[in-house]
Nucleic acid binder design. Structure first.
Length: 407
DNA sequence: TCAGAGTCAATACC
DNA sequence: GGTATTGACTCTGA
């Protein structure tokens, strides 16, 4: 296997100093690997530093503003190439971030606030930021696309003449991920797809107990005819995803601008009402001293968790003085020649100037007093959270032995 | 050992 | 053919 992980980890050893050599698109990998994430672009102007060092030294970034800008630049009304093609998440992920399409999608749709990210989690945002600052960012991506297309055609041609390749007759679920090398293929477990009823049952169980005991897990598993590991994984994933949803609410509550404010939130999908957990208590350090540095404003770090249960007050914040405002947002392309990003300036050298140009931000939808359906959803969700908390408090109170409390 | 974070990759969906 | 979703996995830290 060679995965994005490897390519990213590979960067640890190779502090992105390989320059133009790493412009080679992944698909030109002599191993013939198919679409695995490749080596991301070298970071401009900081060839002496590893990405980890850069992340560690990075000032606080506004992850939402960064993703918004990337989305504006690339998708979905994006930079259309002269031939009408678009950049894809896959291409961007593989060449710039060293991540797969799904991860990019997730990252762009639901960026976690900087202060909630681990060093590793910050890495893609630093990469994105550097990419945004690179005056040739878009051109490079275009080059990548061209090279990749060439490589694809080449592969396609050769596969036509070699149509009985190892995995030629195997579709989808036959082999374990990442073990493509012939002779080392293992039978693959089919992907578990939970049905709506199963999910519903699991969600109900979650609302009762976000951290079920092994016994409960066993029971659930047998009731739903699932493996216990599936149930365990489901709880892990669900907790983690709920937490992330709440981060997004946090951003929205804090500034009135959020991922959902520009046409349908992908982040608050479905009915996730009633999830009341997820405050890990980690609080923002509010590193104001790092304020200089980026062409993108900082987040306003408020109480991370407490707000979720305080619906009324967080609702009040829908003003247009959003901390997440994006300055310098040009007509979709801030690349070469644009005043945005100032190519020569690196991640750590931008001045305050850019962060004071909020007035020019024209594409931030005003989220003032006007309420949209999302606001209602948000309110309902928060109300559900409150109900859930009350419910659990009542439940806890009804138990005499504190050890039985389900918190 | 467990939970969280981060990610992959299969699959659903458009 | 692109993006979104999500079960499973690895890694890390407590």
């Amino acid at each position: 296997g060679h995965s994005a992980e490897e390519s990213v980890n590979g960067l640890a050893g190779d502090p992105l100093a390989s320059h133009s050599s790493s412009l080679k698109p992944p698909s030109e990998d002599p191993s013939g690997g198919e679409s695995q994430p490749g080596t991301p672009l070298p970071l401009p102007g900081h060839s002496g530093l590893s990405i980890q060092e850069m992340v560690a030294m990075s000032p606080e970034l506004d992850t939402y503003a960064i993703t918004k800008k990337v989305k504006e630049l690339i998708f979905p009304f994006p930079l259309t190439l002269p031939n009408g093609e678009l950049f894809s998440q896959r291409l961007f992920g593989e060449t710039i971030l060293g991540l797969t399409q799904g991860s990019v999608s997730d990252l762009l749709a639901r960026p976690k606030p900087w202060h909630k990210l681990s060093l590793k989690g910050r890495e893609p945002f630093v990469r994105m930021q550097l990419w945004l600052q690179d005056p040739h960012s878009v051109e490079k991506l275009m080059d990548m696309k061209r090279l990749e297309k060439k490589a694809y055609m080449k592969r396609r041609l050769s596969s036509l003449s070699d149509s009985h390749s190892v995995d030629g007759g195997l579709v989808g679920t036959d082999y374990v991920q990442g073990s493509q090398s012939p002779g080392q293929q293992h039978l693959k477990k089919p992907r578990v797809v939970l049905g709506p009823e199963e999910k519903e049952a699991l969600k109900k169980a979650y609302q009762q107990k976000p951290y079920p005991s092994p016994k409960t897990i066993e029971e659930l598993a047998s009731q739903l005819n699932l493996k216990t590991s599936t149930v365990i994984n489901w709880f892990h994933n669900y907790r983690s995803r709920i937490r992330r949803e709440l981060f997004i609410e946090e951003i929205q509550a804090a500034g009135g601008v959020g991922p959902g404010s520009e046409g349908g939130s992908p982040s608050l999908r479905g009915s996730k009402s009633g999830e009341g957990d997820s405050c890990d208590g980690t609080e923002s350090e509010g590193t104001m001293e790092t304020r200089q540095g980026l062409g993108i404003g900082l987040e306003d770090h408020r109480g991370a968790c407490k707000d979720h249960d305080m619906e009324a007050e967080s609702e009040a914040g829908g003003s247009n003085n959003s901390p997440a405002q994006i300055d310098c947002t040009t007509s979709g392309l801030a690349g070469p020649g644009s005043s945005c990003g100032q190519g020569g300036l690196g991640l750590f050298s931008l001045t305050e100037a850019s962060s004071s140009s909020h007035a020019s931000s024209t594409n931030i939808p005003a989220s003032g007093p006007a309420r949209n359906p999302r606001d209602n959803n948000l309110r309902k969700k928060k109300a559900a959270n409150l109900n859930n908390i009350i419910h659990r408090l009542e439940k806890a109170a009804s138990k005499e032995d504190p050890s039985e409390w389900e918190f």
